[in-house]
Design a protein around this nucleic acid. Structure first.
Lengths: 342, 342
DNA sequence: GTAACTTGTGAAATCGATTTCATTTTTAGT
DNA sequence: ACTAAAAATGAAATCGATTTCACAAGTTAC
């Protein structure tokens, strides 16, 4: 095992017979240094395989040109697309990205946030886990002068910039669409209400029903469902009622998939006997048979705006304590909710 | 804007009337310090909202207790599951994880690796982008005394530990299965051959055909296909031949999905007229109609083994320069390749 | 020719945690 | 009680890049 000690600017300085400070400036394109010397230093760096040490630089500068992202799951397409958007914008601004997942666990979310604080990131972009109901860990982020930006699963209890969809309005439109397709006994299977987006979607659902003067049984409204399994179980209960729903609106495509599976299992035809509408337009939504109607949230855009906001703040040097940015969704209509010829 | 300067161990030391070195030791549970004092220091740290500064610690220690992961795409379930496995093992060993994606671009892969080197990670676990055909960036990793571990998309040109599936054998089994189902004109749509796994899978495919004494036309063997679009295009060509294949084996579920779509578009019935077999058992494979037969790669296990190997090395202090670990796949048979009653 | 200024360069301080080494204090042993 | 050993504690060096400050050399202006 060779003890390949890493090359530092001091080594470069020695080799070149100049000082370390000079080397540092040369590498950073400081204006007081001639292009010729910059060239020379950079050549040498290349030759000796010099690697900049971020830890040393960050320690000195107190900034890391790094943004941390915390999401529940990186393999839900919603989140991975948001991340893609964030990354694109970071890339433009030559910032790094560190991605963490909370796996929907509060404990892991706290750990991830702590880690990012310790790493001295300049900004944390977060979408809360479904378990998260206290926010000290976010307060801490701000106490450490780290810019906090929330998206999608946000809380108003912590003041920060937020990027969200027009959830209520969109849910309202979904129900309107279902009504227009001739469904009237529309059930709801949504996520936990303490998470803002699900509350909003539920509100939109309820408002549309109210406006249409439709009353639905108590059991038609279900919260706390996020997975395919939840969807299956609740759908089974709903569809075996004496007077079952003729449409189900879910706040996640995963839940919708569970519903579709159960319906198929019970021999219920979609969309003829049951309309199904999802949310998030996951990649698999169009792969199903029939295609799952869902909501496009322009996820990439959300990511771009989240990171974009940070860089705007950085440039303007103003600090906005609290604000909201809304991105409008689009209904993607597929077979699962279309029974009328249009 | 309050100038909330971060609390350091010096601040804690001042407050407590002891030295910084003492504080450091107390926080790190150094044996030479009484439990009472440790308690006291930790309480104070809590009270003043002290945050450990990783940059300072890593600079001093030359290690970051961090593993970097570079994968082509975090939103392919294969990779996100491997990451989940890596994360689980890292979590056990109290190491951090930094996730980067190359997006199948060589340039981005190099940048990601550079970033990780600069951040002083202790180990890099990588699966190569499909563009990668030179490996200087990996050589550099090793030059910087960072442990390198490759998985799935690996190269033998750089000596390192590798975790791979038994790709050849598995592909061989897939073709055997198709033959046994009565398919005989079996086409292949695979990834780029310069990537080891695709070469292996192709080899397995060819061997099975050879053993069965089946010869297939030149056009039945296609490389460089990785996306759904590739799958669609190539499938269209294949299926419109005068003597089209009666089965298609693809090395990615995405490609297989493209094949299925095209087949459906052409009115070709799966599995009756065309058998389709994918690879990777992506989440959507079972969601399709008919279900897509695919190969389970035990991805989580791959991740666990990759990280596990690092920690074993760390514990044993031996350095193994080059080795391979093989994880066996399992054929998941679904509708798309089952036309015989079994 | 001298004052005033620019430009190029380096020494040294700095960031915060860790660790070596030395010193002080305590405990134990006889 | 006195020495030897052990435990507790702190001072200072260290990691590597950046930056402030100062100085030297070279230019310009009158």
């Amino acid at each position: 095992m060779k003890k390949n000690k890493r090359i530092t600017i001091y080594d470069l300085a020695n080799e070149l017979g100049i000082s370390a400070s000079y080397v540092s400036r040369a590498l950073n394109d400081h204006p007081s240094i001639s292009d010729k010397m910059k060239m020379l230093v950079k050549m040498k760096a290349q030759e000796l395989n010099y690697r900049h040490n971020s830890n040393a630089a960050n320690l000195r500068m107190g900034s890391s040109r790094t943004i941390g992202v915390v999401v529940p799951k990186i393999n839900e397409s919603f989140f991975s697309n948001v991340i893609a958007g964030i990354e694109a914008t970071c890339f433009e601004h030559k910032h790094h990205l560190i991605i963490c997942q909370s796996e929907e666990l509060f404990e892991k979310e706290v750990l991830a946030v702590e880690k990012l604080v310790r790493l001295n990131v300049d900004c944390i972009i977060i979408s809360l886990s479904s378990q998260t109901i206290t926010f000290n860990h976010l307060e801490e982020v701000k106490n450490n002068n780290i810019q906090l930006i929330q998206f999608d699963r946000t809380t108003d209890k912590i003041s920060s910039h937020q990027i969200i969809n027009n959830n209520k309005e969109t849910a309202y439109k979904v129900v309107k669409h279902l009504l227009q397709q001739g469904y009237s006994r529309i059930a709801y299977i949504g996520g936990p209400e303490h998470t803002g987006i699900y509350k909003e979607r539920k509100a939109g659902y309820l408002q549309a029903l109210k406006e249409a003067d439709i009353s639905i049984p108590y059991h038609f409204v279900n919260d706390n469902a996020l997975t395919r399994e939840h969807g299956s179980v609740i759908a089974r209960e709903l569809l075996q009622l004496k007077e079952p729903p003729d449409a189900i609106f879910t706040t996640t495509d995963y839940v919708a998939f569970g519903v579709l599976k159960t319906a198929a299992g019970l021999g219920i035809k979609v969309p003829e006997q049951l309309g199904v509408f999802g949310f998030a337009n996951e990649m698999f939504a169009e792969m199903l048979t029939p295609g799952l109607s869902s909501v496009e949230q322009f996820t990439q855009e959300i990511g771009k705006r989240a990171a974009g906001f940070y860089f705007e703040q950085l440039a303007s040097k103003k600090t906005i304590s609290s604000s909201k940015e809304v991105i409008s969704c689009e209904l993607i209509l597929r077979g699962s909710s279309l029974r009328k010829q249009r």
